[in-house]
Design a protein around this nucleic acid. Structure first.
Lengths: 225, 225
DNA sequence: AAGGCCCTGGGACAAATGTCACGGCCATCC
DNA sequence: GGATGGCCGTGACATTTGTCCCAGGGCCTT
């Protein structure tokens, strides 16, 4: 029955640390769509004396606005979010608030995700499988200017190579995820059905699979999509 | 099968007198595959004075053995786990350790999951979207003999109706998830290709979809798989 | 005993899918 | 300037997929 509910108001003991005037409190933004995970992480990180969660949200579109408003030192971003993707938001955030470090925190260690995260200027990439303790450590290291990346994942990302799919191939494949027919896809992407089939075929070829379903799986698996 | 009516819990008196033993500490078992989530929840629940986590694990197969060993009062189980499914384990656990209440904690509020959880004898069903505070409350209510179910989910489960798919249809559909061809499926399930196509067709009909991919999605969505 | 449902197969057919070869239009790079 | 490669489309073709028939066997319940 403890009321640790505050999404914004983190009043209380924080005032004491701040009184010294020295700026040793680390301000965090937390974007994660699973409410329970978000709440648990927020409470957990709040236990560290020098961490302060200045914003927590479950929607990708709010990341940049809230960051500009609250000026966090580190932004913890999930990738799969309603609205804007965490990777998208990361790039925009680096642009809008360069002094804020981005730490990607995701369920899936897809090689392509890591690659895109790095390209978006993220300073770290963590998978949710690891122990919680990793998180606080990673935040401090990122703030110290280090890059934090799972070594095994880095290897996988390199061995997987860059995304071989062309823009259109990705569009078409993305539109095919939930079993849409060629006609559906064509309508969604505004292309001729014949063209759609060509892109699907080439995507299937590049992923070395046998049909669109396998191609979608492979592309997802590698974080190309 | 006709137990659909008993979904709503008894709003009985809460003050259960623990006459014998004065058991004031609540022992918990926590099964969750995501390491970070597991750790965060464990730490969090550990903050409550009267909770004690006696086991935490990330594998479905270990649930029953560890429960027999540690004798928890409540078992918090995720559904999607490596090894045995949480729903499976719930049924076995109710059998092996009836005094232990089962609380299912899952990412997806699939109607079929709820139904199966109830059939397996679970006392509660939470989705990970809700706030963390729900969790501690739910544990206490479950222990008091109440049933804890998201009302919206209960409605969805009822409106969705029971699983219309037959055993074989489920087998075949499950084997088709990652883009396997008819021949692949036939080999995996040890059936004639012709039979496989018949089952696929009827599954597509029952799910009111247009192809196997949509059928798989629909079946997944409803928790029939 | 009769009806119902599921399991298992087969055959035939229309539709969708995957492949290939071919055009033309644009960029960019050497 | 020419080569390359992405983009967009067409037409033809073989294969796969989805549908609709059919039939027999097993297992229930009425």
């Amino acid at each position: 029955m403890n009321d640790a509910k505050g999404a914004e108001g983190v009043e209380g003991v924080e005032g004491v640390a701040e009184a010294e005037g020295t700026k040793d409190v680390i301000k965090l933004l937390l974007a994660e769509d699973q409410g329970m995970m978000r709440g648990a992480l927020a409470l957990l990180l709040g236990l560290e004396d020098d961490f302060e969660i200045v914003a927590q949200l479950g929607n990708g579109d709010e990341i940049v606005p809230r960051a500009l408003e609250t000026r966090p030192d580190v932004a913890l971003l999930d990738i799969e979010l309603p609205g804007r993707s965490g990777l998208d938001a990361a790039a925009a955030l680096r642009e809008a608030l360069p002094e804020c470090q981005v730490l990607i925190l995701t369920t899936f260690g897809r090689p392509g995700y890591l690659r895109r995260a790095m390209e978006a200027g993220a300073a770290g990439f963590l998978v949710k499988d690891g122990p919680v303790e990793e998180l606080a450590v990673a935040i401090r290291r990122v703030l110290a200017g280090e890059r934090v990346i799972d070594p095994g994942l880095a290897a996988a990302a390199l061995s997987a190579g860059p995304n071989p799919l062309t823009q259109r191939e990705r569009d078409v494949l993305s539109a095919a995820v939930d079993g849409a027919t060629v006609a559906d896809i064509a309508a969604k992407v505004h292309l001729s059905p014949a063209t759609v089939r060509n892109y699907l075929s080439s995507a299937i070829g590049k992923t070395q699979t046998r049909n669109r379903m396998e191609a979608v799986r492979a592309a997802r698996q590698n974080g190309w999509l």
